[in-house]
Design a protein around this nucleic acid. Structure first.
Length: 671
DNA sequence: CCGCCTCGAGTTCT
DNA sequence: CTCGAGGCGG
């Protein structure tokens, strides 16, 4: 390329920058480019040349600085001046109307407008300007503190590096960083051609691209940005409404979604929602719902916040993405208790951002209800949850080649005959030495809530089983270093770690051991109740049904299951072996550090920041409180961490007190 | 006997 | 997380 000698380099640089900015805005913000990509690139090249030749005119907010040459090794934490909260979700018109009714009530019947925007599937980001220049950009993180991704955000064309004259000097825009469907598709293609694992959905691609160490990589990913929320507002600069704020963002050069509407009432919102149920698929980016906000900031303040989200906004999501696929076959998995469960093998299909290849069918009643045959075309969905579900079979798509799903007569693992208890749905394999059951039992025994043997997971157990080194629980405690070193996947250190873990697990209290044995109907909770009642394994083993039934929460069915379990001489001698191998066989007196929480019950939902859930549960128990798994009117507190699930909704419905993690800690500390 | 409160068991994918 | 079912109070 030829460089003509500039007459007045400073003036040419300035006009080039202005022109490039104008085209960036046309392309990214207005979606109305006036020049081709090649022409745009030529302008960029010329500007780069000039800046290189006349470094005295370099400037931080030049469009050439979008692709940073610098690298950042870590993402520094950035505390958010105003927390970045997540939104509450609703999945149906009915739930939306419930939210609307709460707003009406909260505003005491006052009239209000609703601002509706597309909810883009990307990741939220805060962008702060100081003195009119982009000063810092950060991810949402846990809502309180995010990660500094300034260098990467600078590469996003749609994000202005500086604000136009007359803009407030200090400004924070919050919005969504996302990737267009088309850019995502080509990224996937490139990755496949390069033999790399592609991102599974545009959201992950955007998140992965933003967290690149090298901003040059981020720059190539063509990320985009929509402003959608305010963060910190400079005093005196508050807009009167959300709609006004969006207009201001546009004036400052930020793109905002064109899928939006200012609605006068709930009916208009629902119409807009229905209208976009189909239309959304033809948008250039993925949306999973709408965000509905009370428009007036004054009314927003009036409504305030709940433990985790604003009361004045809600994400009105489209129902579980459904997908259509075919049933390739049905496999039968054998559980720890011998229960045989049919699992549909599906032709892999994308649904809600992940690829689904199998789905449980639960039992044969379910198969009958669905009228399902192998080869059927089926509709699957991942509702508000994660677990895929077959919704219905499409009988009209049959061509006659479909086959019935026949309940197996024999166990798919050991070939022994299967039985069906009267009045029970499940088929069971009753062979006590069935390999599939043994495998699941061993995994259960070692699992985190039972004997907690880290390193004895699926792959180790499979290898040890294949070598014939594990045939029973006591065998775990007979493993020697030589046994492990014979296996491919065990290096010296790893073998030592596993043996240390195994030795450590011998000290687990009786309650965990009882649970680990996998007696039917005995879970974690009953294990503890029984251990606390009987104190020693001997007393527990020798208890008759009537003695067992005296234990709270133990009725005839559970009592029968326990005596049945210990009736077998083999079981009793297995327990004897465990004892002689040095396992603890009693329950230590619980060190109760008080009973401040006596009689109060807790339910946890979402992820805690400062501790794991089992630590939190242990602390509640230590103070005399109880932890349960489901919310009811009797629940004293629901502790909501990050990303809480349906239990939070239930708590609200029942009027149960909801605590944040901070409030929970204060309660533990006795405040 | 009914209905509420719990617990247990099984499951998917990253 | 959800479903099914056991335990128990009314």
């Amino acid at each position: 390329m030829t460089s003509r000698p500039p007459q007045q380099p400073d003036r040419e640089i300035k006009s080039l920058r202005d022109e490039i900015r104008r085209h960036e805005r046309l392309y990214y913000v207005l979606d109305r480019p006036e020049i081709t990509d090649a022409e745009f690139d030529a302008l960029m090249r010329r500007l780069r040349e000039l800046e290189a030749a006349f470094p005295q005119y370099a400037s931080d907010d030049s469009p050439t600085r979008r692709v940073g040459g610098e690298r950042s090794n870590t993402f520094a934490p950035v505390p958010h001046r105003v927390p970045m909260l997540s939104l509450d979700n609703c999945y149906s018109e009915e739930e939306f109307m419930d939210w609307h009714a709460r707003v009406v009530k909260g505003l005491g019947g006052e009239k209000f407008e609703l601002a509706v925007e597309a909810k883009i599937d990307g990741l939220s980001c805060s962008i702060e300007y100081a003195g009119g220049r982009l000063a810092r950009a950060s991810t949402r993180g846990d809502g309180e503190t995010g990660e500094d991704v300034t260098l990467n955000v600078r590469t996003i064309g749609a994000v202005p590096l500086s604000l136009p004259a007359g803009a407030p000097g200090d400004f924070e825009a919050r919005g969504e960083v996302y990737m267009d469907k088309r850019d995502f598709e080509s990224l996937v293609k490139e990755a496949l051609e390069a033999g790399e694992e592609p991102f599974v959905n545009p959201r992950n691609a955007a998140a992965g691209s933003l967290r690149q160490k090298d901003p040059a990589v981020t720059a190539r990913r063509r990320l985009k940005f929509f402003a959608h929320s305010y963060g910190h507002l400079a005093a005196g600069a508050e807009p009167a409404s959300h709609w006004e704020y969006l207009e201001r963002c546009r004036e400052l050069g930020f793109p905002v979604s064109s899928v939006r509407k200012l609605c006068g009432g709930a009916v208009e919102v629902v119409d807009f929602y229905r209208d976009h149920a189909e239309k959304r698929f033809s948008l250039p980016y993925e949306i999973d719902g709408l965000v509905v906000k009370v428009n007036s900031l004054r009314q927003q303040k009036l409504l305030g916040f709940t433990a985790k989200s604003p009361r004045w906004a809600i994400a009105f999501k489209y129902p579980a993405q459904q997908a259509v696929t075919r049933v390739l076959g049905v496999e039968f998995s054998v559980g720890r208790t011998g229960a045989v469960t049919p699992v549909a093998q599906l032709e892999p299909v994308k649904c809600g951002g992940v690829t689904i290849s199998s789905a449980t069918l639960h039992n044969f009643d379910e198969i009958a209800r669905l009228g399902l045959k192998i080869g059927d075309r089926v509709v699957i969905e991942r509702a508000g949850e994660v677990i895929p579900k077959v919704v219905r079979a499409d009988a009209s798509a049959r061509d006659g080649s479909e086959r019935d799903i026949v309940p197996p007569k024999k166990c798919p693992s050991c070939g022994s005959e299967l039985f069906k208890d009267e009045e029970e749905v499940a088929l069971r394999c009753v062979n006590p030495s069935c390999p599939a059951q043994l495998r699941r039992s061993l995994l259960h025994f070692a699992s985190r809530d039972a004997m907690r043997i880290e390193g004895l997971g699926e792959s180790s157990v499979d290898q040890l089983l294949a070598r014939g080194l594990l045939k029973s629980f006591p065998d775990i405690y007979r493993l020697k270093k030589e046994d492990l070193l014979g296996l491919e996947l065990f290096k010296d250190k790893k073998a030592g770690n596993l043996l240390a873990e195994i030795a450590r697990s011998k000290e687990q209290p009786l309650s965990r051991l009882i649970y680990a044995l996998g007696i039917r109907h005995i879970g974690e909770k009953s294990g503890r109740t029984l251990a606390e009642h009987f104190r020693t394994m001997k007393a527990f083993m020798d208890a008759g049904p009537e003695e067992l039934a005296k234990v709270p929460d133990v009725g005839p069915v559970v009592a029968e299951a326990v005596s049945e379990f210990f009736k077998s001489a083999a079981t009793r001698s297995m327990i004897g072996e465990l004892e002689s191998l040095g396992l603890r066989m009693d329950e230590p007196e619980r060190a109760s550090s008080g009973n401040k929480l006596d009689g109060r019950t807790f339910v946890f939902t979402g992820e805690l920041k400062g501790m794991t859930r089992s630590e939190a549960q242990a602390r509640v128990r230590g103070l005399g409180g109880k932890e349960t798994s489901s919310v009811s009117a009797k629940t004293s507190y629901v502790v909501a961490g990050a990303d809480p699930g349906s239990k939070l909704d239930k708590a609200r419905k029942l009027g149960v007190t909801v605590l944040t993690e901070e409030e929970f800690l204060k309660l533990l500390a006795g405040e």
